[in-house]
Each structure stands twice: as structure tokens, then as C-alpha cells.
Nucleic acid binder design. Sequence first.
DNA 1: TTGATAGGCAAGCCGCCACTTGCCTATGGT
DNA 2: ACCATAGGCAAGTGGCGGCTTGCCTATCAA
Lengths: 101, 101
Amino acid sequence: MVLAMADDVFKALADPTRRRILDELAERDDQTLFEICTRLVTKHGLGLSRQAISQHLAVLESAGLVVSRRQGRYKFHTLKTEPLERIVTRWLRPDTPESTP
Amino acid sequence: MVLAMADDVFKALADPTRRRILDELAERDDQTLFEICTRLVTKHGLGLSRQAISQHLAVLESAGLVVSRRQGRYKFHTLKTEPLERIVTRWLRPDTPESTP
DNA sequence: TTGATAGGCAAGCCGCCACTTGCCTATGGT
DNA sequence: ACCATAGGCAAGTGGCGGCTTGCCTATCAA
């Protein structure tokens, strides 16, 4: 999605599986759906269908946390952290703990 | 709760009403349940029962985002931002965009 | 062209979560 | 003593979200 509201970002982050996907994309970019599937199964040991992951990626993408690039029959996914940086400042405005000189 | 997992924090942030409550507590500390209720109704225009807000506060408290202090028949609620600061660094670790020289 | 790979679409099931409702406890005022 | 206020507890309900299942399209290799 072009315009991702904060609601979408929080909703996307609410699910632990989606956070795992973000973890996976954080340490390796440009992964296809199948790569993400196999990695989630092997490394994190969670058994999910391909469609489940696909739907999770759709949610992450509509939140602006993931962008996808189509190439042939592959679709590569990349993490975007901008939405995160925008939402966290919401309640942290007044003071970082040692910002007062 | 003493030990709040990241899961609890994300789950607490998933609901828009709970984020409104955090907004309210961010701009005014030490509010009672009734104060929060009336403010949410008047300022933000959402009609919710007292119990709904109470349950939301319980979720926020179990996530460590809110602490409560009992005094007489009043219970004052205060925002805590530490859990937020802990969870946001999860995917922002490697680089701020121009950290590479 | 045939088959295999990578992915999409749509309907359906099920559990969780937000919210309500009703009743109960405790503190404060008079 | 009384009543009103501030809040808690517990059961019940409706809807949304995560996951599956089945079938379909598109790309590449032989």
C-alpha cells in the first residue's frame, strides 16, 4: 500500500508469526515466499502452510513494512523500517532518559 | 506484571482504543478510571462502558505500559514507556540510513 | 507441449478478543 | 446508620483474524 496508517502497522505487528517474518527479512533481504516458508519451518520450527505465510506477507505489505519485487515467477520480499520509526515516536516525544543536559 | 514479554506489548498496542488511552495518559499522568472514561468519551467521542476501559487498562498494565497506584477509593494510572523503547530496536539494529561512511 | 515450480484466489472453519450485562466490594460523605 | 461514588468479578455474546483446503494462473525446463 502507498498510504499505510499507523493502525495497519500496529495490526501487522500484533501477530507473532509476522514478527518472525520480519526477523527473517531483517537478517536476509530479497527472499521469496518459499524461502521464507522453509526458513520459518527449519529454523523456528513452526509448521505453517504456504498460504498462511502468503497472507501474512500481504498484511505486512499493506502496512508498508514489506515491499515486494516481481521477477519472473519469483517474488522477492524486502523489509522496510520506515513505518516503525514513525509509530514509535508517538509516546516517546517528551524525553529520552538522558536528553536533559 | 513484573515480567512483560514483547508479545504482551505488541498485543496491547494492537487495539486502537488502548492506543487512545496511551495518548491520554501521555498528555496527563495520574488519571483515574473515571477520568479516562470521560475524556475518551468527550474528547475522542467513542462510547465505551467503564468495564471496557477497565479491561483495556488491565491489558496495558500486564504489558508493563501502565502502572497503577491505589489511593483510597481511587486508582491512578501512569504511562510507562520502557517497554516501547525495548521493542522498537528489534528491527532497527543494523543501520540508520546514512550510518555507512 | 508437457510437466514441474512459484504463487494467487476464494470459501470455510474455529478460536480469540473486545464489549456488554449484572451483580458485588470498598471507601467517603452526611 | 445510610447512600453515593469508584472500582472489581464473572459469565455471555458477536465479530474479526489466522489458518486450512481446493482449485486456478503464470513462468521455466525438458
